[in-house]
């Protein structure tokens, strides 16, 4: 389980960073979103991975650490709000700057650059 979990987090992070370094706003937004997913998974695992651990006090089974769950909830909410904001901002930038390039170049210039 640990192996699958860490590979998933790693792949998500790698793809997120790769996409966030692209030149157009859409891949950047998708990349940042993937990065937040990877972070959420990572935070979720920081209390250690257990199977069949109890979540409510009172049973004899080993307890799951409740703090990462609370933290990841906060992180999900914040990440979701930020993603919504950056999508709107990207659309506004497309309108204002006349291009979907992150530097706001005109189409001819960005074609030459790429």
């Amino acid at each position: 389980m640990e192996l699958i979990y860490s590979i998933c987090t790693g792949v998500l992070t790698t793809s997120g960073i790769f996409l966030a370094l692209r030149g157009r706003t859409f891949p950047v937004v998708v990349g940042l979103t993937l990065l937040t997913y990877a972070v959420n998974l990572f935070l979720f695992s920081m209390g250690g991975l257990h199977t069949a651990a109890s979540t409510v006090i009172g049973s004899d089974m080993p307890m799951a650490d409740p703090l990462p769950q609370a933290l990841v909830l906060t992180a999900i909410v914040i990440g979701f709000a930020m993603t919504a904001f950056v999508v709107i901002l990207a659309m506004r930038a497309r309108g204002d700057l006349g291009s979907d390039h992150v530097d706001g170049q005109r189409r001819e210039e960005s074609r030459e650059a790429s």
């Binding site: 997120g16 966030a20 706003t25 950047v28 940042l32 990065l35 937040t36 990877a38 972070v39 990572f42 935070l43 695992s45 920081m46 209390g47 250690g48 703090l67 990462p68 933290l71 992180a75 914040i78 930020m82 904001f85 950056v86 901002l89 990207a90 506004r92 930038a93 204002d96 700057l97 992150v102 530097d103 706001g104």
Partner: peptide
Amino acid sequence: RTGAGMHYVALNLAGSSLFLFALGILYG
């Protein structure tokens, strides 16, 4: 402002992710 805002927001979102990674490692 839109151009500068796009950079500012994207960089800070990446920075926030990095912050959470660091917190995760330290808590772990």
